[in-house]
């Protein structure tokens, strides 16, 4: 069952998300997105995912906001003659259709927090939880899975970050070299 604090946080992040979508000034949208990332980082803590919360707070709210601010510093903000954008009706129709079709599956999903859900009773989950400490000597099961059992995934992730760095250097070559 969801607590009032969690429900309030969900309402907060949804309001921030709507604000990012509708605010015309890009700087204002970035600030709303920063607040959104912070709210969702707190939600991760409520959902017992402290590692994800830390990453979200540092990377989502921190690095991402800096990258977005650097981008508008190097480019432009649209002239803010209006506070809000005009609602784009075709886009609204597409997103409403998406939400309605996804929501049709809502009651087929197990309740959040159910201990008999497929994820909770899964063989892989329980293998990791039972054997992570003996096999890797790491007490944080998330770290054990990330760096040991699924180390190749993390290696792939490092390759992605490296490629992104190379890609950025190629794209911004003119600016880096002057």
């Amino acid at each position: 069952m969801i607590t009032p604090v969690e429900a309030a946080l969900l309402v907060f992040i949804l309001c921030c998300a709507v604000a990012t979508a509708l605010l015309r000034d890009v700087l204002a949208a970035i600030i709303a997105f920063g607040a959104y990332s912070l709210g969702i980082a707190i939600i991760w803590v409520f959902l017992r995912a402290p590692d994800v919360g830390l990453t979200e707070a540092s990377v989502g709210a921190g690095v991402m906001t800096v990258l977005l601010l650097l981008t508008i510093a190097k480019t432009t903000r649209p002239p803010d003659d209006r506070t809000f954008e005009q609602v784009n009706v075709p886009a609204l129709a597409v997103s409403v259709l998406l939400v309605v079709s996804l929501s049709a599956t809502l009651f087929a999903l197990p309740a959040v927090g159910a201990s008999d859900s497929a994820v909770a009773t899964d063989e892989v989950t329980n293998y990791y939880l039972e054997n992570a400490y003996e096999e890797s000597h790491v007490k944080n099961a998330v770290t054990a899975v990330l760096a040991s059992y699924r180390g190749f995934d993390t290696f792939g992730e490092a390759v992605v970050v490296y490629s992104a760095g190379i890609g950025l250097m190629i794209v911004l070559r003119r600016e880096v070299l002057g």
């Binding site: 069952m1 998300a17 979508a21 890009v26 949208a29 981008t71 508008i72 997103s95 998406l98």
Partner: peptide
């Protein structure tokens, strides 16, 4: 529904994200 509010919020975020992706004229947005 109260038991599945997180899923509903996730679906709404997908909708809001799609709207911004399609509806906004500005590339940063």
């Amino acid at each position: 529904l109260a038991d599945r509010l997180y899923y509903l919020a996730a679906f709404l975020l997908l909708g809001i994200g799609t709207y911004t992706l399609i509806g906004s004229q500005n590339l940063v947005k």
